[in-house]
């Protein structure tokens, strides 16, 4: 058992500071264990959101050594040995207290997306190859690390004009669904601000579920927007097909 120094953000929206804590590191320990040990032994008022401790509830997102991660999925032995471990709240969302942020913006965005709307002729018999793509997106645990790291939100603070990677994934899962009959292309292009994404793939890098957010959701949606709004040949082809 060795001792490690944790530098944990303490404070609220009025201000705060990093506070150093000594943690007795044990084999197999994750950052969330260390936070719990700090709560138990040194700072019972340390605020931290968590639930399953199994990387499935998506509650314990934070920035460990500056990288957005789930605390319950970040093993201490995967961090550089001997170095101080810094833990701070996700930077893109308003701080409530210590490591807890207000992620309600994400739920507001979610409500703007029209839900699954079956086609009138939906047969409800689907082949596996038709739902494989959508199933990848269903792995999302809504930890919002992708929303936190996306520079459109984080650096440019364009929350009013941008839905963010998590919700591009949700829209992609609906648009690619073989039984869905609703068209969300105008929403994607205008209200969701898909064009603000410059495909720098940070969302994919931080996804704890390893969803290929950029390649399998955002880029295919960008290409569908091109089909609809920017490709004159696709436009001509649609006209010819509709005329037949």
């Amino acid at each position: 058992m060795s001792s490690r120094v944790f530098k944990v953000w303490r404070g609220d929206k009025s201000g705060g500071r990093f506070v150093d804590y000594q943690v007795q590191a044990e084999e197999g320990m994750v950052v969330l264990d260390a936070i719990h040990q700090i709560q138990r032994t040194q700072a019972p008022d340390l605020a931290c959101r968590w639930n399953c401790k199994a990387a499935k509830c998506g509650s314990c997102g934070a920035e460990v050594n500056g990288k957005p991660r789930l605390m319950c999925k970040t093993r201490l032995d995967a961090l550089p040995p001997g170095e101080v471990v810094s833990v701070r709240p996700m930077r893109s969302f308003p701080l409530i207290r210590d490591l807890v942020t207000d992620v309600s913006w994400n739920f507001q965005v979610n409500q703007k997306i029209p839900p699954f709307t079956p086609r009138p002729d939906a047969t409800w018999i689907m082949q596996q190859e038709d739902v494989d793509r959508v199933q990848e997106f269903r792995k999302c645990i809504e930890c919002f690390l992708c929303q936190n790291v996306c520079h459109v939100v984080r650096e440019h603070d364009l929350k009013q004009h941008f839905f963010g990677p998590r919700f591009f994934v949700r829209i992609a899962s609906l648009q690619m669904h073989p039984m869905d009959g609703l068209d969300r292309m105008a929403l994607l292009k205008d209200q969701a601000g898909l064009g603000l994404c410059n495909v720098t793939k940070c969302c994919t890098e931080v996804c704890p579920e390893e969803i290929h957010i950029t390649d399998n959701a955002i880029i295919p949606m960008k290409e569908r927007v091109v089909d609809r709004y920017y490709d004159p040949l696709a436009w001509l082809w649609r006209k010819i097909r509709n005329a037949r």
């Binding site: 920035e63 500056g66 990288k67 957005p68 930077r91 790291v149 520079h151 459109v152 984080r154 650096e155 440019h156 364009l158 601000g193 064009g195 603000l196 994404c197 410059n198 720098t200 940070c202 890098e205 931080v206």
Partner: peptide
């Protein structure tokens, strides 16, 4: 990722 960038008030992405 998670590194500061030049301040650009008119960021428009690919729009």
């Amino acid at each position: 990722c998670a590194v500061g960038e030049p301040k650009n008030r008119c960021y428009q992405g690919e729009r």
